[in-house]
Computed example of a mutant assay.
Amino acid sequence: MKKSLLVKVLSGVMAVAFLFAGCGNTDKAGSNGADKSWDEIKEKGELVLGLDDSFPPMGYRDDNNEIVGYDIDLAKEVASRLGIELKLQPINWDTKDQELNTGNIDCIWNGMTITDTLKKVVLFSDPYMNNQQVLVVMADSSYQTKEDLAGKSIALQAGSSAKIALESKEDFKASLKEVVELKDNTLCMMDLQTGNVDAVLMDEIVARYFIQMKGEKYRVLDEGLAAEEYGIGFRKNDVQLMTKINDTLKEMAADGTITKISEKWFGKDISTIGK
Rank of each mutant, 00 (worst) to 15 (best):
I154S: 03
I154W: 08
I154E: 00
A155R: 08
L156K: 11
L156M: 15
Q157A: 15
Q157L: 08
A158Y: 00
G159H: 03
S160P: 06
S161D: 12
A162F: 02
K163T: 11
K163N: 12
K163F: 09
I164M: 09
A165V: 11
A165R: 09
L166D: 04
K169D: 13
E170V: 15
E170G: 01
D171P: 00
D171R: 13
D171K: 15
K173M: 10
A174R: 12
S175L: 04
S175T: 09
S175F: 07
S175Y: 06
L176M: 06
L176N: 05
L176Y: 04
L176F: 07
L176G: 03
K177E: 14
E178V: 02
E178L: 10
V179W: 07
V179H: 06
V180Q: 05
V180L: 12
E181S: 13
E181D: 09
E181R: 01
L182E: 05
L182N: 04
L182Y: 00
D184W: 02
N185P: 02
N185L: 03
N185H: 09
T186F: 13
L187A: 11
L187E: 13
L187T: 12
C188S: 15
M189S: 01
M189Q: 08
D191L: 12
D191N: 14
L192P: 07
L192K: 02
Q193F: 09
Q193S: 14
Q193H: 12
T194F: 05
T194L: 11
T194H: 04
T194P: 00
G195M: 08
N196H: 08
N196Y: 11
V197Q: 03
V197G: 01
V197K: 02
D198W: 01
A199H: 07
A199C: 09
V200T: 04
